[in-house]
C-alpha cells in the first residue's frame, strides 16, 4: 500500500472511529486529540485489519512511541517494507 493510500485509510479511521476533528499530519495525538493508551491499542487492531496481517508483539511495543499521524505512516511503511523483504 502506498503512503497516500495508507494516509487516506488512517485518516478515515481517525475521523470516523475516533471522532478526530480536522486532523493534521503533525498534530500531537495525545495533546491535540486526547488519544490515549486505550486508543492506541484499539487503533492497532484496526490497522491489523486494514493491512490484512497480524502485528508481532515487538511491532506493537514500537507503536507506543508514536506521537503523530506522520509517525503512524512511517511506522506502517517500515512494517510493510520489513514484510516485503
Amino acid at each position: 500500500m502506498t503512503r497516500d493510500v495508507l494516509q487516506k485509510k488512517i485518516l478515515s479511521i481517525l475521523v470516523q472511529d475516533f471522532e478526530f476533528q480536522e486532523p493534521g499530519l503533525d498534530d500531537n495525538l495525545r495533546e491535540d486529540h486526547g488519544f490515549d493508551s486505550i486508543d492506541a491499542i484499539e487503533l492497532l487492531g484496526k490497522i491489523e485489519r486494514t493491512l490484512g496481517f497480524s502485528l508481532t508483539r515487538e511491532e506493537k511495543e514500537k507503536a507506543m512511541e508514536i506521537r503523530t499521524i506522520n509517525d503512524i505512516l512511517d511506522y506502517l511503511e517500515r512494517i510493510q517494507q520489513g514484510r516485503a523483504q
Binding site: 486505550i38 484499539e42 492497532l44 487492531g45 497480524s54
Partner: peptide, 14 residues
C-alpha cells in the same frame, strides 16, 4: 471471524 487478528477490542473488558 478474523481469527488471525486481535479481534477482541482493547476496550471490551473495560
Amino acid at each position: 471471524l478474523e481469527a488471525e487478528f486481535s479481534s477482541i477490542g482493547a476496550v471490551d473488558y473495560l
